[in-house]
């Protein structure tokens, strides 16, 4: 009797630990690795959602500076069919050691993915032939409305909101 009670208690403890563990995983966002194909799916999506694809890296100062603007856009507009994706172009070896801790520290809420392609020459043109490869860079697309706007520069919230409002 006392044995089963003890087991019950242990089970509850295990459940509690599991629950806490799962919650922690939800809090610390996972960073999926994507290939050119995923990028092209977003770029060519037949969707009524505006995709805001921002190319950044933890070491890129102007990128880090503009991240709050994208986060704000995500907060204000994610319920209005605007999807912000922050695409990290850091080195692969730094994903665990730098990108994940950075995302956690900055509490980024927009979706963060890692561009898992070693040769940018294979995918930079797919984003825009206008893009030289310099960071930061942002692509804003709404295929159903034929909107395709590319920026090879730092953006602020006012500009982002204005663009999104015009498209919506």
């Amino acid at each position: 009797m006392s044995g089963s009670l003890k087991n019950d208690f242990t089970m509850k403890k295990i459940c509690l630990i599991l629950l806490i563990g799962m919650n922690l995983q939800v809090l610390a966002q996972d960073i999926p690795f994507i290939k050119k194909e995923t990028l092209q799916q977003w770029i060519n999506a037949d969707s009524d959602t505006i995709y805001v694809l921002n190319f950044w890296a933890t070491w890129c100062a102007p990128c880090v500076e503009e991240l709050p603007a994208f986060e704000k856009l995500h907060r204000e507009y994610s319920s209005k069919k605007v999807k912000v994706v922050l695409i990290s172009t850091d080195f692969k070896r730094n994903v665990e050691s730098r990108v994940k801790p950075f995302v956690k520290r900055k509490k980024l809420q927009s979706q963060v993915v890692f561009m898992d392609e070693p040769n940018p020459n294979h995918w930079v043109n797919a984003v825009s032939p206008e893009w030289s490869g310099a960071l930061p860079a942002t692509l804003i697309i709404h295929n159903r409305k034929d909107k395709y706007l590319f920026f090879e520069k730092q953006l602020n919230y006012e500009t982002l909101e204005e663009i999104v409002k015009t498209i919506l």
Partner: peptide
């Protein structure tokens, strides 16, 4: 001609 990711000037 090739393209690469780099720090913007």
């Amino acid at each position: 001609e090739t393209k690469a990711i780099g720090c913007g000037i």
